[in-house]
């Protein structure tokens, strides 16, 4: 465990908690893509099936349970508890265009052709693009609440820190996982445009709104 890995995990946790608290405090999930949140729940479910087969550490196990629990709590809030505030009309990204090709790719490009490994690979590929419905929704409405942008910032920062972690691990441990690295690079690139807007607008106290 190096500093990039730890801060990456904490950044990921911060993002998840910020989103949950935003929905809970405002009693509203306006501006949040339920589709992205379903994809993230699917990502955690397919990736952490190894909870049933192997024990890494107390840290590892607890974080997995927290991520899965929070992901389903978020989906529950959007599609059940605060359903009336969910802006489904703007959440129109066609997720089957992501899930189906990624399922195929996970079958074709993986480390080992076994069920758990294919599901893990699927989760890595899916995570890299799971934010697209949310970004699509923002581009459609042309704006995002500031708290939503903080969520996106920490979520993007997390994978960028993991990239640093992988560079660290390559140099100091000789460890590298090509599938995770390539997907992680794709995932981080998807946030670059957003990072730019976050720094130039939100951090200067302005609301994130896109030109019409």
């Amino acid at each position: 465990m190096n500093i990039f890995r730890l801060t990456g995990d904490l950044s990921h946790l911060a993002a998840i908690i910020i989103l949950l608290l935003k929905i809970w405090k405002t009693r509203s999930c306006a501006g949040i893509s339920g589709k992205s949140q379903i994809l993230f729940a699917l990502v955690f479910t397919t990736r952490y099936l190894d909870l049933l087969t192997s024990f890494i550490s107390l840290y590892n196990t607890s974080m997995k349970f927290i991520y899965i629990g929070c992901a389903y709590a978020t989906v529950y809030m959007i599609y059940a508890k605060f359903k009336a505030t969910y802006d489904g009309n703007h959440d129109t990204f066609r997720v089957e265009f992501l899930v189906v090709p990624i399922g195929g790719l996970a079958f074709l490009v993986n480390h080992d052709f076994s069920p758990l490994e294919i599901l893990w690979t699927f989760s890595i590929y899916l995570e890299s693009v799971a934010i697209l419905p949310q970004l699509f929704m923002i581009s459609k409405t042309g704006e995002a609440e500031t708290i939503t942008t903080h969520y996106l910032f920490f979520l993007g920062l997390y994978r960028a820190l993991y990239l640093m972690n992988w560079i660290w691990r390559f140099y100091f441990e000789g460890f590298f996982d090509m599938i995770a690295i390539v997907a992680g690079v794709v995932q981080t690139i998807l946030y670059c445009d957003f990072f730019y807007l976050y720094v130039t607008k939100v951090l200067k106290g302005k609301k994130l709104s896109l030109p019409a």
């Binding site: 890995r5 995990d9 990921h12 990736r47 190894d50 192997s54 890494i56 550490s57 590892n60 974080m63 997995k64 991520y67 480390h111 080992d112 490994e117 893990w120 993991y162 972690n165 460890f175 590298f176 996982d177 090509m178 995770a180």
Partner: peptide, 10 residues
Amino acid sequence: DSATTEKDEL
């Protein structure tokens, strides 16, 4: 290529 067994990352 790399570890297919133990996934210590999240």
